[in-house]
Amino acid sequence: MNKKERAEFIGKTLDEFYPNPPIPLQFSNTFTFLVAVVLSAQCTDKKVNSVTPALFALADSPEKMAKISQEKILEIIRPCGLAPMKSAHIAELSKILLRDFHGEVPHTFEELESLPGVGHKTASVLMSQAFGMPAFPVDTHIHRLAMRWGLSNGKSVTQTEADLKKLFPEEEWNRRHLQFIYFGREHCPARHHDAQKCPICHVVGCREKN
């Protein structure tokens, strides 16, 4: 099975398991989605979803968030990893949205990546899931699966993103991103993985870095 054939089988399997994968983060508008994605860096979606209701009850817009102290934001999001840095980013990006973008979350990669705490992956998630633009966000989990399934050489997240974009049609990118995440969590975890029981690995093989 060559790489193209592996990608076709993987895509078909992912569609069977997750035909309409939901966005795992809880949010009510584009701003709250941006904040939730910033919080999700090196933190589980479950943990993010446990702290955002209290945060968004106080502030669900840049205007409201800019009026809250960084200390108050930190107090609420403390259970998330890197909370001191993230609280600073949330406080600052709220002010920047008001100052430079009329209180709206921008719609381009360049503008999104100019915001504190927003790197290429975070911007890709916003472009894909908030604005419906073709993007293939690659986090460490998707990077791991792409290497494990022989879709990329695993040398860098940037290379993995480029490889996946070549293998899957553009109209599938947004869906595939979410499908990879769900499948990895439920059927192809990083630890205690049984390749023979995995619906994908037992067909395409399992390539691990030792």
Rank of each mutant, 00 (worst) to 15 (best):
I96A: 10
H89G: 12
K86V: 03
F109A: 08
E111W: 05
M85R: 10
K86W: 06
H120T: 05
H89N: 15
S87L: 01
I96C: 10
K121R: 04
H89I: 04
I73D: 07
E71G: 00
V105E: 05
L97D: 12
G117I: 08
I76A: 06
A83G: 03
E75M: 08
L93K: 14
P106S: 01
H120N: 06
H89V: 07
M85N: 13
L74H: 07
L74R: 03
K72M: 01
G103A: 09
S114F: 09
L74W: 04
T122P: 10
P116M: 04
L98Y: 02
H107G: 07
K86L: 05
H120Q: 07
E111F: 04
E111I: 03
I77R: 03
S114D: 11
E92T: 13
S114Y: 10
E113M: 15
I90R: 12
V118N: 14
E75L: 09
E71T: 00
V118I: 13
L112C: 02
E75V: 05
M85F: 05
R99H: 15
K121G: 05
L93Y: 14
D100Q: 14
S87F: 01
K86P: 11
G119L: 02
E104Q: 14
D100S: 14
S114H: 06
P84I: 02
E111K: 13
P84E: 10
I73Q: 04
L115R: 04
E71R: 00
I96Y: 01
S94R: 09
P116D: 09
M85C: 01
P116Q: 06
T108I: 08
L115D: 07
E110P: 02
F101S: 14
L97Y: 08
L115T: 06
P79Y: 06
V118W: 13
A83I: 00
A83W: 03
